Computed example of a mutant assay.
Amino acid sequence: MDGFQAYGAGKAGGAFDPLTFLRQPQTVVGVLCWLFSIVILGCVANEGYVNRPNEVEEFCIFNRNQIACNYAVSMGTLCFLCCTTFLALDVYFPQISGVKDRKKAVMADIGVSALWSLVWFVGFCFLANQWQVSKEDDNPLNEGADAARATILFCFFSVFTWGGLTLLSLERLKRVSFEEEYNKLFSPPLA
């Protein structure tokens, strides 16, 4: 069975094809996750802090709750680094020769993707709540309102993109589990 692959990759040692890599659904969704994390981080870091004319210190636009801005900046940064790491792992994945190592990589991808989906759901709920209870008196010029809305929106989108990555990784795991069973049943014994 030359057409079978181990955990969604061909035989180890093959040449890297960037077009094939970029056309994979997992790569496309991973790049979307990466871009969404940049948008979230950029919106909060650039326009998430405002100050009133009579105040010296800046405050978080989300109900003056510093924790909300810190959460968005921290999760945006960690998500960016995580996306970069897993995109690099996807590039390196066909070079991994051991089936057990590939299985570990797929299992890690499933766990991390599911965790990030949960983290962004919590972030969406938290930031939307803090934005909803923000007082108009704290920001009379409505500075950064578009950035706050964009942050909330991209947190919402991130829930689904990370959930999609989880489903794609689960599909990869199912496909390979079937291939392993097929190979066990129908491969000729080694002499």
Rank of each mutant, 00 (worst) to 15 (best):
Y71W: 14
F93H: 14
V91M: 12
L127F: 08
N63W: 05
Y49V: 09
V122N: 03
Y182A: 10
A12D: 06
V133C: 08
R52C: 09
D138H: 07
L165P: 00
D17M: 04
G30D: 03
N70Y: 09
F59N: 07
V99W: 04
A68N: 04
A88L: 15
A12E: 07
S37K: 01
D101E: 14
P94Y: 01
A147P: 00
S37Q: 05
L35Y: 06
W34S: 07
D90Y: 07
I38A: 13
M75R: 06
C155S: 15
R64F: 06
G8H: 01
I152Q: 01
A88R: 01
F160W: 13
A114M: 10
L22D: 00
C79N: 15
A45N: 09
I110C: 06
Y182P: 02
V28D: 06
C33I: 01
L141W: 11
V133F: 08
D17H: 08
C69W: 04
L153V: 14
N183T: 11
P18T: 05
V56F: 13
F21I: 00
A105D: 00
T27Y: 00
L167V: 15
A191P: 13
W131S: 13
S37A: 15
Q24D: 11
F154Q: 03
C83P: 03
R52T: 10
A105Q: 03
V133Y: 08
V119N: 02
A147C: 07
G30Q: 02
C83N: 13
E55L: 12
L168Q: 05
V99I: 13
R149H: 09
D109H: 12
A45V: 12
L89G: 02
A114H: 00
V99M: 06
L170V: 15
V159L: 06
E181D: 14
N70G: 13
M1W: 07
K135F: 09
W131F: 13
M1V: 10
A9T: 06
G163W: 05
N129M: 10
K103A: 09
N70K: 11
Y92Q: 09
A68S: 14
Y182F: 15
I96H: 01
Q130D: 15
A68T: 08
E136D: 14
V106C: 07
W120F: 15
A108F: 05
N63V: 04
R175Q: 13
F16A: 02
G30A: 10
E47Q: 13
V44Q: 08
P140E: 09
A108L: 11
P188N: 09
L78R: 05
A68V: 08
W116R: 04
E180R: 08
F93C: 05
A191D: 13
V99G: 01
G8T: 00
M1R: 08
W162D: 02
A45E: 09
